[in-house]
Amino acid sequence: MTYLNQVFAMAGKDLRSELRTKEALNASLSFAVVILLLFSFVVDPDSEMLEQMSGGLLWMVFAFSGTLILNRGFARELPNDCLDALIASPIPGSALFLGKAMANFVLIAIIEAICFPVFGILYNLTWTTQLPVLMGVSALATWAMATLGTMFGALTVNMQLRELMLPMLIYPMLIPALMAAMQLTTLLIAGQPIDAEHIIWLRVLVAFDIIFTALAAVLVETVLVG
């Protein structure tokens, strides 16, 4: 089995088991909708201010509901000692990590794909004018969440306060990526292209993804095996 096959096998396994039970997906999605609803009390839904805040609001929703999915990533392997079996299986730790990160990426992307139109409908915003670019930006930021979230999911999997520790650890670290995603999403929802002034945020996202994916892929073996 080549390295990529191992990664895809891992991602496929996680996605299959999640899509059959849908336990994290359902919880995360209903949570996201509840937060979207709550935002209507934060700002006047009909005001212009909403458009200026849209990127921030949306990425808060994704960050909050995303952690529900990220928490399940490794916790899913705890019953029946599945994690030990996975570690004992003949695939490198980095392949295991990348596969799980990919599965988390797809699941968070599903939440986003549902939340964007719901947001557009509830708050009466046209958000599709820059759709391809918006999808690219979302993909970059979602990968940032998935890679850090999966890594820290591995770090916290054996803790009692797991569900609390993961957000506490990853939110401060994710701030550069979330900041960039919020800036760019607001711009793109307003229908403007990414200009010279904002290109720096795109660079932040790309650099963040590369640095932390590499760091996690190197260190994950240590975390899992010891």
């Binding site: 820290f152 306060l161 520790m165 670290m173 260190l219």
Partner: peptide, 29 residues
Amino acid sequence: GYLMLREGIKDPSERAKNSAVLSIFAFFA
């Protein structure tokens, strides 16, 4: 968060290992 992670892990060698990884991540972050 680093100190909280240490608080939460009972096993000494796992605590040392996981918090070491976190410390490296933290510095980059």
